[in-house]
């Protein structure tokens, strides 16, 4: 881990797909690193999302994923699978409550590696409108499963969801190698100014929550 990824850095670092020069610069033999780039490129362009939606965000994700107006097929991610065994992208669309949390964890565990998670909407990021004074809401999907990209909004527009997906694709292309499987970047929030991390935001939220209750 240890690498602090920010959007600007990712966009600078992410090697263009067949650019072998940038692949050479990394450590290790040239062949393996080029295979890494190829594999990551292939993975990033064939994400199969799981049809998982709990509330309002699911409609906008459906709008983005299935409908003709904003076509997710342009990014190679239109094959929505109802079974977690066949999917490799979990889009947490909507609020997660305490009763649903073990089920979400089971769904995540059933997915085959490599698997990626996008948390869409305020509820999946922090609890959203239910962050205060709710006895049943889980404050963010990261409390249950590791999240790669957060997409803010309540609910996010389909375009925002696309931006999150493109951010995830960049992360995958820049991401784990064959020699270091499972090593993943820290989560990023799509559409966030560079230099601000999720940790900063979370600290702000906690400070705000303390201020609201006292």
């Amino acid at each position: 881990m240890g690498v602090t990824p920010q959007l600007s850095k990712i966009s600078q670092q992410s090697p263009s797909v067949f650019d072998l020069h940038s692949a050479h610069k990394k450590e290790g033999p040239a062949l393996l690193t080029s295979i890494d780039a190829l594999v990551n490129w292939a993975r990033s362009n064939s994400l199969w999302p799981l049809t998982f939606g709990t509330s309002c965000c699911a409609i906008e994700v459906m709008m983005a994923a299935g409908a003709a107006h904003h076509d997710l097929a342009r990014f190679g991610a239109e094959v929505a699978r109802p079974s977690p065994r066949q999917a490799d992208l979990l889009v947490v669309a909507g609020t997660i409550v305490k009763k649903m949390a073990p089920r979400l964890r089971t769904l995540y565990d059933q997915m085959a590696e490599p698997k990626y998670v996008i948390a869409t909407g305020a509820c999946a990021i922090s609890g959203g409108p239910f962050i205060y004074d709710s006895y049943s809401t889980v404050r963010g999907a990261h409390e249950i499963i590791p999240v790669d990209v957060y997409v803010p909004g309540c609910p996010p527009r389909p375009e925002a969801f696309f931006y999150g997906l493109l951010t995830l694709q960049k992360m995958i292309r820049d991401g784990e190698s064959l020699r270091r499987p499972g090593v993943r970047k820290a989560p990023v929030m799509a559409a966030l100014p560079p230099g601000i991390t999720m940790e900063d935001l979370r600290a702000e939220l906690i400070k705000g929550a303390k201020g609201a209750t006292t």
Binding site: K99, R103, Y132, S136
Partner: peptide
Amino acid sequence: GYIHRGMEKKAETLGYRQQVHLTDRLDY
């Protein structure tokens, strides 16, 4: 109960003007 968010309890902590936005998230 898999998406029970405790809206009715939460509504008690909000003013009358703030009730509106909670109902958006019932039947969206």
